[in-house]
Amino acid sequence: MNIMTIIGMLLTSLGALFLLLGAIGIVRMPDMYTRMQAGTKATTLGAMSFILGIGFMEPAWLIKTILIVVFIALSNPISSHALARAAHRSGIFPLSRENIDLYKKDNQEDKS
């Protein structure tokens, strides 16, 4: 068991932990936007770390796994952004005590 395998095991363990925490966050959070916070950021980091760890455990696969990591980093934030915008435009507003919703004002100016 050399140093690359140990780094890979650490990275995969970290990734699996973040995936689990993201999934728990989806269930436990009170509001759709906070659920999205847990369900997109934590799982994106988890999947990137997990797949990079697999590349470290099998050094011949490293180039292709780095390619997968780059693709996840490029494509996943776009879907999260589009989903948040669609939810806001279809009439779901965040639960907040102070009623701060700057995007609502933007949206009304955009409509007119």
């Binding site: 490029l74 494509s75 776009i78 952004h81 589009a82 915008r85």
Partner: peptide, 8 residues
């Protein structure tokens, strides 16, 4: 579409 989606 938003500009982020267009660029992406």
């Amino acid at each position: 579409p938003s500009s982020i989606l267009t660029t992406g």
